[in-house]
């Protein structure tokens, strides 16, 4: 019933080149599957449960989407260079605690607490980037170290308790609505557009793809790939801390329990579902955003359908499995042609 409605809205997303037939171009756009899946899932759920498309639920999804989406974009930027960043979730959790600690215990004003935390996160990203480019350490290992240490830092600072009494600036950022639209969602949209512009419209963005696609060819073509790689790790860590601001604002307390734990896997899953190749060099922001939206729709949809939350991960895992298989099959067919 609703499968036929799927391609129509997605056509508006990628339509500016009036040379080849629209349908043909749609079929060749790798992101079309994810976008279609989002539409199908949304329409199905909305038809089945009227509460799903209610304003309150949509706003809730908007908040979720912002926090997952920001780290998914950071994660994707790193994956595009051919690396991986396992620390995004743990770093988000640590940022939440650091900000509340600086704000409450150290008595810094919220803005200063945010800036200091961003500086710390940026430094962590810089260390990641330098370890990967200069010392040629595997990104998996480098960021795994941070993942572990960051979780430890979070626990050490809080000893398991929450930090209460944070400044109003945080909730201003994390809980405000602009014309019924959550502010975090707007921030996410701005970041996504900025990332899109960087990747598609700047030469530095193109060089990121080149480094991920074939580092040696990029080097011999005179591209300083190391700089691109380092800057992507820094951006990823900064986006984690930035998402941490929104999370802290939404919760109202600096809590160590469950914040950011395992989120890096959601971020990687969103990237892969959106068509980002784990070998690097391939993937676009449209797909990454669509991948995040799809994960959020499924997650929220299962709750709306009142399916036991213990089953959620099974469904999400299966979706990821499907996406990876589809990606592999597509890559193989490309390789065959070549």
């Amino acid at each position: 019933m609703n499968t036929s409605t799927a391609p129509a809205p997605s056509g508006t997303v990628a339509g500016d080149e009036p040379r080849r037939p629209l349908l043909r171009r749609l079929a060749e756009t790798p992101e079309v599957g994810v976008v279609a899946a989002c539409v199908v899932v949304f329409v199905s759920l909305a038809l089945d449960k009227s509460t799903f498309a209610s304003a309150v639920n949509l706003q809730g999804m908007g908040f979720d989407l912002a926090q997952y989406g920001l780290i998914a974009i950071g994660e994707s930027l790193v994956i595009l260079t051919g690396g991986i960043d396992l620390s995004v979730g743990a770093l988000l959790g640590t940022s939440v605690i650091l900000m509340s600690w600086f704000n409450v215990r150290a008595g810094l004003p919220p803005v200063l607490a945010i800036l200091v935390t961003l500086a710390i996160a940026g430094t962590v990203g810089l260390v990641h980037g330098l370890a990967v480019t200069r010392l040629k350490m595997p990104p998996f290992v480098v960021t795994l170290v941070t993942y572990t240490v960051a979780q430890g830092v979070t626990l050490a600072i809080t000893s398991g308790t929450s930090i209460t009494g944070i400044g109003g600036t945080f909730s201003d950022l994390g809980q405000t609505y602009v014309a019924q639209v959550p502010l975090p969602l707007i921030i996410f949209a701005v970041v996504a557009v900025a990332a899109w512009f960087f990747l598609e419209r700047t030469y530095a963005g193109r060089q990121v793809y080149a480094v991920g696609g074939n580092p040696e060819a990029a080097r011999l073509a005179g591209i300083r790939g190391d700089r691109r790689v380092v800057s992507m790790y820094v951006t990823s860590s900064l986006l984690s801390a930035f998402a941490g601001i929104l999370v802290l604002g939404r919760m109202g307390v600096g809590s160590a329990s469950g914040v950011g734990v395992g989120w890096e896997l959601s971020a990687i899953a969103a990237a892969v579902i959106g068509g980002v190749s784990l070998t690097g060099g391939q993937g676009r922001i449209l797909g990454i955003v669509a991948g995040t939206v799809l994960l959020e729709l499924i997650n929220n949809g299962l709750t709306t359908l009142q399916i036991n939350s213990n089953y959620t991960n099974i469904v999400l895992g299966c979706v990821l499995g499907l996406a990876i298989t589809a990606d592999r099959l597509r890559a193989r067919s490309v390789a065959r042609r070549g």
Partner: peptide
Amino acid sequence: KEQSLLPSHSVRWNVTLATLR
């Protein structure tokens, strides 16, 4: 294959690689 091309990227990306800036 190993040192020149971005094999899965378009011809356009490949030919403009050294002149992007």
